[in-house]
């Protein structure tokens, strides 16, 4: 089954850039991504630019309205996503639990529908 993992963290949480903890976490991400790539588990994955770079689009009565940023209702920032192909939910949650931000943020596991959009 295919799942999208949505990675979030509370603003300011997790290791700060320039600390040894930050370097250690980067190494963990690197090794994990390498492993997932080699095993063919990941279909696609990417980090997201901060929300300040986001634009929200709505069409209302034929008019396109753009607004600056997403209106995040929670304090947790969406910063990355993975689309993975694994046997079942247990495998997806086990993978999610290995992502470093699960320790101080969260990973939402969303099963994809059978409908291929592209």
């Amino acid at each position: 089954m295919k799942y999208m993992l949505l990675l979030r963290y509370p603003d300011g949480a997790g290791p700060q850039e320039g600390t040894p903890e930050f370097d250690a976490e980067m190494a963990t991400w690197g090794a994990l991504n390498q492993e997932l790539k080699e095993s063919g588990t990941v279909i696609t994955a990417a980090g997201l630019q901060p929300e300040t770079a986001a634009t929200t689009v709505r069409t209302r009565e034929g008019e396109t309205v753009l607004t600056d940023g997403p209106f995040a209702e929670t304090k947790e920032l969406l910063f990355s996503f993975y689309v993975v192909d694994v046997p079942d939910l247990d495998a997806a949650t086990a993978l999610a639990a290995r992502l470093p931000n699960a320790a101080y943020g969260s990973v939402a596991v969303r099963p994809l529908t059978f409908i291929e959009q592209a």
């Binding site: 089954m1 799942y3 046997p87 079942d88 939910l89 247990d90 997806a92 596991v109 099963p111």
Partner: peptide, 14 residues
């Protein structure tokens, strides 16, 4: 069904 919860006895490590 939608989330793919497996129908099985969990493996030993879980």
């Amino acid at each position: 069904v939608a989330a793919g919860i497996p129908y099985r006895v969990p493996p030993d490590d879980q």
